[in-house]
């Protein structure tokens, strides 16, 4: 069967099988920023945006994603122009082993997009990360990074930056 997606803004059509999950489909095609961590939707390492909403790609069959828009961590920022959320994680020493980081960045992106501006509370930052297991950081610095990113994105200058990117 063929799975057609709008992947990071570009149309793709990939051969797949009914039992294949989206995580594996993406990884098979080199999108290795999406990680496999628990296979039950509880760790967040495999998070991607499906039609703009954060979902665990380990619980989405590739076939279920057919006809939808998928954004992965690879679609968020680049070496030349990292996304402000990625910058905030890097600057805030919120990246330790890094296995959870793409999922956390995706979660923050989804939440902040939906919220559409305005100040982010610490409680909200904790909630949006609650499905993202991290055994390294103790969440202190990721929470701070998300708050910092929200502030940066609320600043019209960096928001403009993002639009160009």
């Amino acid at each position: 069967m063929n799975v057609e997606l709008t992947l990071n803004g570009e149309a793709v059509s990939w051969e797949s099988e009914p039992h294949e999950f989206l995580t594996e489909l993406l990884r098979r095609h080199g999108l290795i920023g999406t990680k496999r961590g628990c296979e039950s939707g509880d760790c967040g390492a495999c998070a991607v945006l499906l039609d703009g909403e954060e979902v665990p790609s380990c619980l989405v069959l590739a076939a279920q994603a057919h006809g939808h828009e998928v954004t992965t961590i690879e679609g968020l920022g680049s070496w030349e122009r990292p996304h402000p959320i990625q910058e905030a994680f890097v600057d805030g020493t919120a990246v330790q082993c890094g296995y959870c980081t793409p999922g956390m960045v995706i979660a923050a992106k989804a939440y902040l997009d939906r919220k559409g501006g305005g100040p982010l509370s610490e409680r909200e930052a904790r909630e949006l990360l609650a499905g993202h297991v991290c055994r390294c950081t103790g969440y202190v610095k990721p929470i701070a990074a998300v708050l910092r990113a929200a502030e940066a994105l609320g600043d019209p200058r960096s928001a403009g930056e993002e639009e160009r990117a």
Partner: peptide
């Protein structure tokens, strides 16, 4: 900045 952080944050 940790020497590996950006690479990891970019996935």
């Amino acid at each position: 900045r940790r020497v590996d952080a950006l690479k990891l944050a970019l996935g």
